[in-house]
Design a protein around this nucleic acid. Structure first.
Lengths: 92, 92
DNA sequence: TTGACACGTAAGCATACGCTTACCTATTAT
DNA sequence: ATAATAGGTAAGCGTATGCTTACGTGTCAA
């Protein structure tokens, strides 16, 4: 998906950087397709994939929500630790 | 581990709230022990577990680091999406 | 029209995960 | 001494995951 940030790309270009066989990539793409995160367009014998901004936006919102959740958890852990042995000099 | 935030607890008290058998809990505790996240103390026939603040602090630092990493990724995604279709009214 | 290319899909697999049942030891209570 | 309690560990399992190899289809090129 990082690669697709550059724009539309065919499967072989998506698979090239990875130490996996092409079918493995196809399977990943299938999952992404079924999730609506990517779309395909057939051009000649290629299948060009691109990101689907709409669903991606949904994921963004969902993750942003949980990011807040986890941040509060993390904060609570930090406060717990400070309570245990007092605030500590942490490496910067 | 949330339970252990209350202080030292024996295994049965840790297992009680869960719909799992006690051995399953023991296995989780074993992993936590091997990671140094919890410590045990034998009191009579009980084994009382408690959090190990030191390792927990390491985890905290590690997670805090990656939290920054992921936040930047998330931000980049948000900006990408805004670039695609322009900033969108998001549900608040 | 025949081969080469781009890709999808199915089947098989090794491995990881997380539980349960069964059993063992150490301690306390009777 | 014996039974009950607290807990650990091993073995077996169902299931998920993520590959690979093998093969099928549609398209372009010679």
């Amino acid at each position: 998906m990082d690669l697709l940030g550059q724009g539309e790309l065919p499967v072989n270009r998506l698979a090239a950087p990875f130490a996996m066989t092409r079918p493995a990539i196809s399977q990943h793409l299938r999952v992404l397709r079924s999730a609506g995160l990517v779309g395909v367009r057939r051009v000649g014998r290629e299948r060009r994939y691109r990101l689907r901004a709409a669903r991606l936006r949904e994921v963004y919102d969902w993750v942003a929500h949980y990011e807040r959740f986890w941040r509060s958890k993390l904060k609570a852990l930090g406060e717990y630790l400070d309570r245990q042995h007092g605030p500590v000099e942490r490496k910067k």
